[in-house]
Write a protein that binds this DNA or RNA. Structure first.
Lengths: 139, 139
DNA sequence: TAAATTGTATCACAATACGGATACAATAGT
DNA sequence: ACTATTGTATCCGTATTGTGATACAATTTA
């Protein structure tokens, strides 16, 4: 599994790892029940402390994206399972609420927020076009 | 200007202040060019250090909500002005991008995100109904 | 059962965030 | 010009966060 980190990019290393794993799962490059690199292995590969990988994997677990079995390893959870799905939705709801309440405080209407979200989606689609054509699950 | 803070509510004091001022502005209770309490005054009123108020006012300034004039005071900016509006939009775009990229990483479709945003807006409308009926700008 | 492999827990250190005390600088108002 | 008022800058102590080093515990595998 290929992961790249850039120390002091502002975003913590453990979060960089978690985000990239999330992307690998969502894009289908990591399939359900597939094993992630053991904590020590990934730590050695990235030249960081195992603790940081622990934190990354823990975050993924708390979001229902992976499960861990002592002595066996860390594996991709069934992200389509109701439980995992519910947990993921809970996280997104937090982001949506942040956006909406901030917008309200700044005096934006709901329609303006909707329009902005649509516009950003188009923007992100375009800039991510190259990788995405290759990143979509092919099953 | 009435502001209430609750220390160690998890959210930092300076942010509590900034948020409440934002709300007062968005709701029309603070009008364009109206003066905010001087830093020292608000600090004494809230029994906190002036530094914390400085930080709150600075955040508001960076979002284009207030402007400061040394020796004169801190005033509500024209939040409808293109410059302020653009700055505010820049902040909301950040939140929207966070929501969209997180959703994509978790394998949600854009339509699901839209549906969620609509649903959360309804929820927030209901829970905030009482205050909002009185807080909407009446001009 | 024994050894190897895996995740877990604990302690330690550096950097950052938050809040506080004090001194400084620019402007307003007289 | 002088004084009062306002925002600004600097230094400090504490708490939290991010990362690292090391020892521990459970499970797998032979």
């Amino acid at each position: 599994m290929h992961i790249e980190i850039s120390p002091q990019d502002g975003v913590p290393i453990y979060r960089q790892i978690a985000n990239q794993v999330k992307y690998l799962i969502a894009s289908g490059r990591l399939k359900t029940n597939e094993e992630l690199p053991p904590i020590r292995v990934l730590a050695e590969q990235l030249l960081i402390t195992p603790n940081t990988v622990v934190k990354a994997y823990h975050e993924l677990q708390s979001e229902g994206l992976v499960y861990k079995r002592r002595g066996a390893g860390t594996f991709v959870a069934d992200t389509k399972s109701p439980l995992a799905r519910r947990e993921q939705k809970r996280i997104l709801i937090g982001r949506a609420d942040a956006l909406l309440s901030e917008a309200k405080q700044l005096g934006f209407t709901f329609d303006e927020v909707l329009e902005m979200v649509r516009s950003r989606q188009s923007a992100l689609d375009k800039t991510a076009g190259k990788e995405q054509s290759d990143a979509r699950p092919r099953g």
